[in-house]
């Protein structure tokens, strides 16, 4: 029905091509076209952070970005996060610290934490809380998530 375009971009280190409607969100492309369902839909209006991915290293709500705007860019999702040392460290820290309950906010939290720690390698707890302010979690009360990001920043195992 709607106009489609073929785009190419680097997805988790892999050259990827996809044909997408011009009005499709990056989130819908990742989940429905490319089958990467690790990135979650929870609000569709950029309020909850569950769909956070990194585009050219910057965290964005993939529900608010058009898929076609991924053209020529580098996109990182939770599926590829452990390929890099900081991502792997964060994943392990989330497990070790009990930062996951239902797990639905976790992919977005991990991506946001990665973006945040790249910019602030030695944050205080208050800075971490501000760093994940845009990501909602209904299960954990955030404490263990902050613990995990802090542990990853210290390089704890």
């Amino acid at each position: 029905m709607s106009l489609k375009r073929e785009i190419g971009f680097l997805l988790n280190g892999v050259e990827t091509r996809a044909t997408v409607p011009v009005d499709m969100s990056a989130l819908a492309m990742l989940r429905d076209v490319l089958g990467l369902t690790g990135t979650k839909y929870a609000c569709g209006e950029g309020e909850c952070g569950a769909c956070t991915v990194l585009v050219d290293g910057v965290s964005v709500c993939s529900c608010l970005q058009f898929a076609v705007d991924c053209e020529g860019r580098t996109v990182s999702t939770i599926e590829g996060v452990s390929r890099e040392p900081l991502g792997a460290k964060l994943e392990q820290a989330f497990v070790d610290c009990g930062a996951v309950q239902c797990g639905f906010c976790t992919p977005g939290m991990v991506m946001q934490a990665k973006h945040f720690l790249e910019a602030h390698p030695h944050p205080t707890r208050d800075e971490i809380k501000r760093g994940i302010e845009g990501n909602l979690c209904r299960c954990t009360g955030y404490v263990k998530i902050v613990d995990a990001i802090e542990a990853a920043s210290r390089g704890d195992r």
Binding site: C137, R138, C139, T140, G141, Y142, V143, K144
Partner: peptide, 10 residues
Amino acid sequence: EGQIEGGIVM
């Protein structure tokens, strides 16, 4: 601890 912290925030 996670259950209780989450419950407190809820």
